[in-house]
């Protein structure tokens, strides 16, 4: 069953078209990766789906309801959580206040034991300013903040950006655990190899368009996948 269904989504910045006619579905309890090189339109797509950016055309349905022009805060209440690119935590606030800020709208309890079993480091850092955490800890905090909203759809933009392999494992492990609990995830990832390891299905974007899509298992075997990623003429 489709939780998220995007049809013909276009995003433009003035005269520049960042995303052109994107069609994309996310089913309940699956991880879908948007893969592609820099400037492919991955982040613009996710920002538009999460309501942080107004699309110029297209429809976005969540559970059959059109959400294309809803603001981000309303989508957050409807169960869509965005973890924006670049670990955008609230730097001059403590870790605890970061978590509380995510819980106040809708009054959820903030000390969810599940968060601390996934990210034990956060419990030790509760009183510290979030801006002083390491990159990997900040990414954990950003994901924890999104999890506290108990989303049905979590959109994560480049969670592995600038992280050491150890932290990538921690973060991806948390994303898999969420999927196993029935949360749907749309994850932007630049590395095709890491995306193949994480996702159930993959959309490969180049220059604002989807050029290839399929299940990770089959794409991993497909020699054209790599060629399409790098934009070469498909080698025969």
């Amino acid at each position: 069953m489709n939780l998220l269904s995007v049809k013909g989504l276009s995003v433009r910045y003035g005269p520049i078209i960042a995303v052109r006619h994107l069609d994309l579905d996310v089913d309940v309890g699956e991880i879908v990766c948007l893969v592609g090189p820099n400037g492919a339109g991955k982040s613009s797509s996710t920002l538009a789906i999460a309501g942080a950016l107004l699309p110029s055309a297209g429809t976005i349905h969540l559970d059959g309801k059109d959400i294309a022009r809803q603001p981000a805060e309303r989508l957050a209440m409807a169960g869509v959580s965005l973890v924006p690119e670049g670990r955008r935590i609230f730097g001059r606030m403590t870790v605890q206040d970061n978590l509380i800020a995510a819980c106040l709208p809708g009054r959820r309890p903030f000390d969810d034991p599940e968060i601390f079993s996934l990210f034990p480091i956060l419990r030790e850092r509760m009183g510290q300013f979030a801006g002083l955490l390491s990159g990997g800890e900040q990414q954990q905090l950003a994901i924890a903040r999104a999890m506290l909203r108990k989303p049905r759809l979590m959109i994560v933009d480049e969670p592995s950006l600038g992280l050491s392999p150890r932290f990538v494992d921690i973060v991806f492990g948390a994303l898999r655990q969420l999927r196993n609990q029935g949360v749907s995830l749309l994850v932007v990832e630049q590395s095709a190899r890491r995306a193949l390891g994480l996702a159930d299905r993959i959309y490969l974007m180049r220059s604002g368009e989807v050029v290839m899509t399929g299940r990770s298992g089959s794409l991993a075997q497909d020699p054209e996948f790599e060629a399409a990623y790098f934009g070469k003429e498909a080698a025969r």
């Binding site: 942080a52 957050a76 800020a101 995510a102 709208p105 909203r149």
Partner: peptide, 8 residues
């Protein structure tokens, strides 16, 4: 952006 996505 992050705060709005948290429902603020």
């Amino acid at each position: 952006v992050a705060s709005r996505s948290a429902g603020v």
